[in-house]
Each structure stands twice: as C-alpha cells, then as structure tokens.
Write a protein that binds this DNA or RNA. Structure first.
Length: 472
RNA sequence: GGCGCUGUACCCAAGUGGCUUAAGGGGAAGGUCUGCAAAACCUUUAUUCGUCGGUUCGAAUCCGACCGGCGCCUCCA
C-alpha cells in the first residue's frame, strides 16, 4: 500500500519499521475550548487511516496528545476566573465526549503534557548539553542555526524565513527563528521546577518528549493538520533528531483544512462551528461521510447544503442496512441465494484504500455495492437469510469498521422516545385494516400522525415497516 | 518575497499518459412499482476537464505561458 509522505512530497510504499506493528502519533487538541468541526476533519481522517491499517492486519499503537498547559489556557483561565487545571480538565473532558460522538476509535493512550514535564526537561537538558539550546534568564531557546537540516520538512530555508519573518521581536533570541523550549514563569502562572528555574515547557517540546516516551525514538506515522507543518513539526524534527540522533518520523501525513466560503476555518478568525454544534444537527456517520468523500489532503468547504447532501447519502446506506437487518431477523430459509460477487467489492475497496487511503473512491465502492444489492433484492422474492449475512459482513468490515459511515448495532434506533415500538405496531395494524377496507383517508391520517412523530412508514411486499428518523 | 495547495457537470467530488469518448454522492427531469406515498430500481443530465500554446500515435492527466481561488512563513487541525 502507498502513503503520501509530506517529507518527500511523494507517494511511498508503506513499510513500517517493525511490522506488523505500526506506531502512529496524532497531534491532539489544546484544551482551552471545544474543538471545531475543522479539527474534527483531521481527527476523523486520522481515525480512518488508523482503522484501515488495522483492517490490513497491522497492530497499530495510536497516540493522541492533550496539550493542557499553554498561553491560551492561561488566558482562558484568567477570563473565566478559574484555575488553569479546571479549564484544561473541563475541555479535555469535552474533547473525549466529542471524539466519542464522532465515533472515533479510542486512542491507545492520550498523554497529557503536564504529566510529562520531567521527560521534557530531560530532552531540553540533553539539547543544552549538545549545544542546541541556550538559556537566557530562565528562558531556554532552541538554536536553529545549529541544526543544519532545519526546514527540511516544510521546504523552507532559513534565509527566506528570516527575510520574510513577521514580527516576533524577542530580544533574548539569537535568531528570530529560534523557538522556546522552556518558558520562565510569570506570577500566577502554572510552573514547575527545572534546572533553569521555575517555568513551563514550550509547545513543540511536548510532542518530541511524549512521542518518544510512548512510541520510541523513531516512529512510523506522525499526523496533523497542514498548519502544523511549519513551524510545529519542523521544530519537532529539530528537537528530536538533535537529541536522539536518529530519524524521528518515517511518514509525515497532513490533512487539508475545512474552509468556510473558501477561507480556512480557524479559532482566530472566529468563523468556526464547534464539532458539538454540528453533531447536534447531523449524525456522526453523515459528518464522517462528508469528510470521507474528499481526499484528506486537499481543502474542503463546509456548509449546511453540503452536510445535507452527505446526510442524504448516509440515509441511502442506512436504508439498505435496515433492510438487511430486518431480513436477518426474519431468518428465512429458501433456495433463493442470488449470485453475487461480494469478493469483488472487498478487493475494489482495498485497491483504492491501498492507494494513499483514497476514501472518496472507497465510498464510491460502497455506493456501487449498495446499488447492486438493492437491485438484487428488488428483483428476487424470498431470498435466503445467508445472502443477507454476507452483505452485512461487508458493510460491517468496510463502511463501519474502516470508514465509520454506518453503525450497524441498534439500527432499530431509539431516537424518538415519545412513542414505543408496540404503539407503532398497533397503529400499523389499524392502518392495514383501514387499507383493506379501502378507507384511505384514515390510513393516510395514521401515516401523517406517525410522520409527525418522526416515524416513516414503508409499505413493502411483505408488509409495512417503519423507521424512526432523527428529528434534530 | 519564499514555500506549498488548488481550478473537472446545476452543487460536492474521484481520476494525474491508452482500462475513463471522465467514478461516486446530492439535485433536476422522465419511467417502473404503489390506492397514494416512501424506499428501491431503470433512463437522461460534461464529446468535455480555468485559458492559450506545445510534446505525443494518443493528454483532464506531461511541458510552457497566462488568468483565478486558497494556505503556511505568528497561536491554529
């Protein structure tokens, strides 16, 4: 399988360092706010990458860090007159909730920066000993001029950077590109003891320290949004490779932005929707389908119109899944087992996903599968249940376990608690009677009544079925 | 200024030299089924891939120029 590596700007054959193990690090949130739907795009796409690697049989160790100390958190705590710990805990909790709602598979571990201070100090100390860091009055900086490969990930050279450098006049830095490893504490800020006095870690150092501690000095995949390429990931390379003298990351993966009207969604621009607001309006599966329908690397616009269109697509998958579920419950034995080559769909799915996780084409395979199976179902009466088991397996393994665009468990959902299934069945019986007596006015009344409760009736050859729609 | 991404139907979007005289989703139009619906299925909806040149037996795909849109270089997925 192939994977696009930002470092080489080419698709490369994926060969993990220690197969079948794969180590994967994803830059997680800074917990000073709810994360927005643009962040969610990166998280979900990383989730799909991870799940596909697992589908392929790799043993993936997936880690996502939580930045729980930084300027934004301190500012937020000040604004809300809370402690930084309370702010960080609150939003970390919210992060876990939202990520779960997005149906992301849980990471193997979510390391927190504040629980790895000593590891970070260790890395900084070593950098200082090796001459890559310098201390000015308790602020420790990384000396970019000492790392000759600086800029190799982002394709920047230090001369260009300096000439185009925007502000950040810091008298203490030798060079404007130097970045903070350890930040001297100001009054009232959270701080830890260190060889350079009380202070707190810079942002970049946490990923170097935590990635190394939990995944090793060299890892297979390090992922994050495009905006992290420079300076964040560039700085991580500078730190880790100067410190440990070995290649930090084999494959760098970066995700495109979610835009609003062609502009990057970002917290600083204020043009964002939080993931939880969007999750209140649309099912996670529809959101994931929306993301999966575009290649992960490019930009993607966000709008209600686009989300609605994805939701329609999701309902198409859902309709088939529900049909399958009903048929499996009926457990009918018959001689009718239609010819159908499920294997072809598995191999198509793998073929496109093997090509740098081409999820849009994977989604297309799923929809091809849906059309083909719907056709068979429409053209055959009384199909043996075993046929449906095969279909379910396919959806389970691909659409659910890898893409997460359907959730097969508990499909006869409980979205609307205002009415229970027995009441619905009773009304359906009443309507059937009315239909038999050609009292279509009453029959339609019942149907309308149910629609208002979020219940859609469908008259099929075998009888009337219903489904509950999400009345969000 | 440097580095990078991007321009494909009404909308979203895949495809990066012949398998594609261009996937898939949404929308629209017509049809089948149905008491009517819903769901589902069938048909139609780009001889064309920002523009202009070039390379090639052959290009949306390679090269050049030009015109748009976006991002990073400052915290940001």
């Amino acid at each position: 399988m192939k994977i696009y590596n930002t470092f080489t700007k080419t698709k490369e054959e994926f060969q993990p360092l220690n197969p079948p193990n794969v180590t994967m690090y994803m830059c997680g949130p800074t917990v000073y706010n709810y994360f927005h739907i643009g962040n969610a795009r990166s998280f979900v796409m990383a989730d799909i990458v991870r799940r596909y690697l697992e589908y392929k049989g790799f043993h993936v160790k997936f880690i996502m860090n939580i930045t729980d100390v930084d300027d934004n958190i301190i500012n937020k705590a000040f604004e809300e007159k809370k402690s930084t710990i309370d702010v960080a805990d609150f939003y970390a909790e919210a992060f876990f909730e939202d990520v779960k709602k997005l149906r992301m598979k849980e990471a193997n571990f979510y390391p927190k920066a504040t629980l790895h201070i000593s590891e970070m100090i260790g890395v900084i100390k070593r950098l200082e000993e090796k001459g890559f860091a310098y201390n000015v009055n308790g602020n420790v900086f990384y000396d970019v001029s000492k790392f000759s490969d600086y800029g190799k990930l982002s394709g920047k050279n230090t001369n260009d950077l300096e000439s185009g450098a925007r502000v950040d006049v810091n008298e203490e830095k030798k060079n404007p590109l130097d970045f903070t490893l350890w930040k001297k504490a100001k009054d009232g800020e959270p701080s830890w003891d260190s060889p350079w006095g009380k202070g707190r870690p810079g942002w970049h150092i946490e990923c170097s320290a935590m990635s190394t501690k939990h995944l090793g000095k060299s890892i297979d995949i390090h992922a994050g949004g495009n905006d992290l390429i420079f300076p964040h990931h560039e700085n991580e390379i500078a730190q880790s490779e100067a410190c440990f003298e070995q290649k930090f990351v084999k494959y760098w993966m970066h995700f495109g932005f979610l835009n609003i009207q062609n502009e990057k969604m970002s917290k600083s621009l204020g043009n964002f929707f939080t993931a939880r607001e969007v999750l209140d309006k649309y099912p996670a599966e529809a959101i994931r389908l929306f993301f999966a329908q575009t290649n992960y690397g490019g930009p993607l616009n966000f709008s209600d119109e686009l989300l609605n269109s994805a939701q329609k697509g999701y309902e198409k998958i859902l309709n088939l899944a529900e049909k399958i579920e009903r048929e499996i419950k009926l457990n009918s034995r018959s001689a009718v087992i239609p010819e159908f080559d499920v294997k072809k769909y598995y191999s198509d799915f793998e073929k496109v996903m093997d090509d740098d996780f081409n999820s849009p084409q994977a989604v297309a395979v799923i929809f091809d599968f849906i059309r083909a199976t719907n056709k068979i179902i429409a053209e055959n009466d009384n199909i043996d249940s075993n046929f449906y088991h095969g279909l379910k397996q396919f959806l389970k393994k691909t659409a659910e376990n890898v893409l997460g665009i359907i959730h097969l468990d508990g499909l006869s959902n409980e979205l609307n608690p205002n009415i229970d299934n027995e009441q619905i069945e009773l009304l359906i019986k009443k309507r059937d009677m009315a239909k038999k007596e050609k009292d279509f006015i009453l029959a339609d009344q019942i149907r309308t009544e149910l629609i208002n409760l979020g219940i859609i009736l469908q008259d099929n050859k075998t009888g009337t079925t219903f489904k509950k729609i999400n009345v969000k």
